[in-house]
Design a binder for these strands. Structure first.
Length: 264
DNA sequence: GCAAAATGTCAAG
DNA sequence: TTGACCTTTTGCA
């Protein structure tokens, strides 16, 4: 399940195994069948990730994928197993088969439409060319709670519910604070913290927001309890002050925060 | 065996 | 602000 790190990681994997190949495209579930047939056999030029969006470019045809909250990709080495569940799109070479299930968006679009999607999105912390000043300006302009702004993909692209809670906690910023009350230092630190967490997510292929010194080193990979500071951990006290972690719906999603370490 | 929740977004009211 | 949508997993009987 995807925040921006999943998307960038998938783009890297799919570029490695699919790019430059003539792909066999199909839609075992049927909902993308005519578009899959229209593109079957075409050469995939590249996969482009941005925020939570993926673009598979075949000349002037682009397949736009947004995983939403449920969507998932699965890669199989040959021989491909029969489709499991509702496979919206299957992309195959002789060596690999990639299955897509449950996306919010899987559509064939033109390059202009792709550009229109990109134009709506804010800077992506995982994009090396990202302009963090655009994010700073969005914050300065808005009296909306910073916890809501972080989920607004036109303010900053790729951040989701886990990263927003964890980054605000690390920096001691209350999610309810109006974005325009954050100082320039806080906005900068927020960008840097999110970028650091999301790069770790790409590398490990899962969300790990805790710093190594805050984890149990004896384990090879972080346990679930060690991966986050407080997201969905209302069963545990705050790791810094012992206060119960609080949760509340903010920006249509559950926000988690410590009322002591993140004072309003 | 079934309800509820899940790392998301949009349109309707 | 609420409900709809996409699918799988988890938790409780």
């Amino acid at each position: 399940m995807p925040e921006g790190h999943t998307i960038h990681r998938l783009a890297r994997e799919h570029n490695a195994i699919l790019r430059g190949r003539a792909l066999r495209l199909s839609s075992p579930q049927g909902r993308f069948a005519s578009d899959a047939a229209a593109l079957d056999g075409r050469v995939l030029d590249r996969v482009r990730p941005y925020g939570k969006h993926l673009f598979y470019e075949y000349g002037d045809d682009v397949v736009h994928v947004h995983l939403g909250i449920y969507g998932k990709f699965e890669t199989h080495a040959a021989p491909a197993p029969p489709p499991r569940g509702a496979v919206r799109l299957r992309m195959a070479t002789n060596e690999h088969t990639v299955d897509l299930r449950g996306p919010t968006v899987c559509e064939r679009i033109r390059p202009e439409e792709r550009d229109a999607v990109l134009a709506r999105l804010g800077p992506d912390p995982l994009d090396p060319k990202a302009d963090r000043e655009r994010f700073a300006r969005s914050c300065a302009r808005r009296a909306t709670p910073i916890g809501t702004v972080l989920l607004d993909q036109s303010a900053i692209a790729g951040v989701g519910n886990v990263y927003r809670a964890e980054a605000l906690y690390v920096l001691g910023i209350a999610p309810q604070r109006p974005a325009n009350t954050l100082g320039p230092g806080e906005v900068d630190a927020l960008w840097d913290t999110l970028a650091r967490m999301m790069r770790t997510g790409v590398r490990l292929n899962r969300i790990v927001t805790t710093l190594p010194e805050d984890r149990d080193r004896r384990r090879g990979r972080p346990s679930d309890a060690d991966r986050h500071y407080l997201w969905r951990r209302t069963d545990l006290p705050c790791r810094r002050c012992g206060e119960p972690i609080r949760t509340e719906v903010l920006g249509a999603r559950h926000m988690y925060w410590c009322p002591v370490c993140q004072p309003a």
